[in-house]
Write a protein that binds this DNA or RNA. Structure first.
Lengths: 113, 113
DNA sequence: CATACATATCGTCAAACGACGATATTCGAT
DNA sequence: ATCGAATATCGTCGTTTGACGATATGTATG
């Protein structure tokens, strides 16, 4: 039974979480989600980091599959990848549910199967 | 209205996301969520990393507020911090909603509020 | 008090990250 | 054919991360 598959899924999810794990990228994400159509260098102005840095953050988000870039020369229009965040959201639910189930009433030693 | 507050919230959320941004920590989290009562060094066995490394991951999760440790000498019982993941989950929803709204039919300039 | 045990911390190392300026690329417009 | 604008990539630097073994801490029990 190879855990490689599950392992891959974990890596993917971790990568997504990691992509969200930076304030600047959160802001970029909100901006992208909120803004219809193209914003280009506007991101740079709003975020207040160097253009190269912002581009790098965008690359990271893109690599994680969280956003997609559609070329509209000379710009690139970014938008949320639909569903990319769902695995993460599912994990959170999964964790919460499992936790609640175990929280409720099991005395320390009754953990027999 | 200083953005420092919002900023802080972002940092916090990013920190939580970052804490989830590692496969080993995802596995630890699932384990903790699923396991009633104390697991101690059991984590080490299951995860397959050195005890110090696991301890470090636990510290990171704890610092991010994702788990809590309750002392039950000579062990420490870890459990999910209830609600710690909610902000992240909310963000995901928020992003998805905003995205969907902008996807469907809003012309570029109708973006009020 | 000494011991054994579970967990935390320390010191170290290689690797990855975050940020920047400078440069490259790739188009449309002149 | 050249120019200019929007993004991407490169090279660099200091900081942080991930992993480990070794060691410290703290607590019941001999």
């Amino acid at each position: 039974m190879k855990d490689t598959e599950e392992d891959q899924a974990d890596k993917k999810m971790a990568a997504v979480a990691k992509a969200l794990g930076h304030p600047a990228r959160l802001r970029i994400l909100r901006l992208v989600a909120r803004t219809p159509g193209c914003i280009g260098g506007d991101i740079v102005d709003v975020i207040g980091l160097a253009q190269s840095t912002v581009s790098e953050h965008l690359r990271i988000l893109k690599d994680a599959g969280v956003i997609e870039g559609q070329i509209d020369p000379p710009r690139v229009c970014y938008s949320l990848s639909p569903g990319a965040l769902l695995p993460l959201s599912s994990l959170i639910d999964e964790l919460d549910v499992a936790h609640r189930e175990n929280m409720c009433c099991v005395p320390p030693s009754a953990a027999e199967r």
